[in-house]
């Protein structure tokens, strides 16, 4: 019973995701106005040759701040996991 259900769920997922190759054409993106803007003006506006970098740090710089903070958050989480414990701090949370 459960196996059939799992198989059905996976089938539906596969079918749903198959809409991507069916309706999006690879190699020929549909609308490109935003990226055309970036390619056209990115070099002059950000004065950088690498358009990807100028997007990462200029047009979408705020995302990159978030991205760095994600890494910082993960590092803080890891530090929290392997932290040194105080004396007598043990407590059971059951």
């Amino acid at each position: 019973m459960k196996k059939v259900l799992v198989a059905a769920i996976f089938l539906v997922w596969a079918a749903g995701l198959c809409t991507i190759p069916l309706f999006l054409s690879f190699g020929d993106p549909a609308a490109t106005d935003m990226d055309t803007y970036f390619i056209r003006t990115g070099q002059a506006a950000a004065a950088a040759n690498n358009i990807v970098t100028s997007i990462v740090f200029d047009f979408r710089g705020f995302d990159t701040l978030g991205e760095s903070v994600v890494l910082f958050t993960a590092v803080t989480g890891v530090a929290l996991m392997f932290r040194a414990r105080k004396e007598g701090e043990e407590h059971e949370d059951e």
């Binding site: 690498n50 997007i55 991205e67 994600v70």
Partner: peptide
Amino acid sequence: PIYTNAPDRVMVLPTPQALTLTSIVIGVA
């Protein structure tokens, strides 16, 4: 999409690459 020493051809779209960079960092974190 890098103008440094590039041949003069049409460029691929840069935005998804920027998004993917962010996504990779999030993945490793």
